[in-house]
């Protein structure tokens, strides 16, 4: 019973990612199939690589016949933002034993976002199960989407243009939720500002990594004032908490 409750909770939390992943996975499978690859390759890529944006890049690299070194360097650059994600979960994943290894492997943008916004369960073990279920469900959606796309690319009956906005909506909700539950808005404003400046300066294809590096550097350099500000805003209790 308890397992089913946790699974249901994880399922409800992952529905937004499901909408985004099934659609995006479908698009990936479709692309790979159009490039002349068997659907099993879509399955293999989504099970083994499991990196949304990188897999789209991979289709291009495969068809170009790029060298393995090019593949490795490109993957490193496209996925380098993932280096920042693990920092928030070192203790959590360490405590999860073997499941922790899968948690590291499956830490995509969207899963990271969901895990960040997941509140602890009634016991540490429940929390671990919840986190694991969320990660595993997310990958299931992605794998199902890719295989479906590769198998039945031409059989879409209704207009699904724009459904990939689910991903943007998910990030929007997370930013709003973080904004409403924290008193220190400096990191959020910093992230937004750095990304906006980098986007304008560097263009859409390579702005994220410099933006994230700038955020981290600025946070580290101004650690003392930020921590002082943290203590200050935490010390002032706000009686009118929303909800």
């Amino acid at each position: 019973m308890r397992d089913r409750g946790i699974f249901k909770q994880a399922f409800l939390r992952t529905i937004p990612v499901m909408m985004g992943y099934v659609f995006l996975g479908f698009a990936f499978g479709l692309l790979l199939q159009r490039a002349g690859y068997h659907w099993l390759w879509a399955l293999a890529a989504s099970v083994l690589v499991y990196a949304g944006s990188m897999q789209f890049v991979l289709v291009g690299l495969l068809t170009q016949g790029a060298s393995l070194l090019t593949i490795a360097v490109t993957t490193l650059v496209v996925n380098s933002r993932h280096i920042f994600y693990g920092l928030s979960f070192i203790d959590t994943f360490k405590a999860m034993g073997k499941r922790g290894l899968y948690m590291v492997f499956s830490l995509t943008d969207e899963t990271y976002a969901l895990l960040c916004s997941t509140t602890p369960g009634s016991s540490p073990e429940d929390t671990k199960r919840l986190l694991f279920n969320i990660s595993a469900l997310d990958q299931c959606y992605w794998v199902c989407g890719s295989v479906l796309g590769a198998l039945m690319g031409n059989v879409i009956t209704f207009n699904i243009t724009g459904i990939d906005f689910a991903m943007t909506a998910l990030f929007t909700v997370i930013v709003v939720e973080q904004w409403l539950t924290t008193k220190n808005h400096v990191p959020a404003l910093l992230g937004f500002t750095c990304a906006a400046i980098a986007l304008v300066a560097l263009g859409p294809d390579q702005f994220l990594l410099p933006a994230l590096t700038a955020c981290m550097t600025i946070l580290l350099v101004f650690r003392n004032p930020v921590e002082r500000y943290n203590r200050k805003v935490a010390g002032v209790s706000n009686p009118q908490e929303t909800h």
Binding site: F84, Y85, C116, F171, I174, A188, L190, F192, A195, L212
Partner: peptide
């Protein structure tokens, strides 16, 4: 918090 705002962008 910073990463999420950047990812939204």
């Amino acid at each position: 918090h910073a990463v999420m705002a950047a990812l939204l962008v």
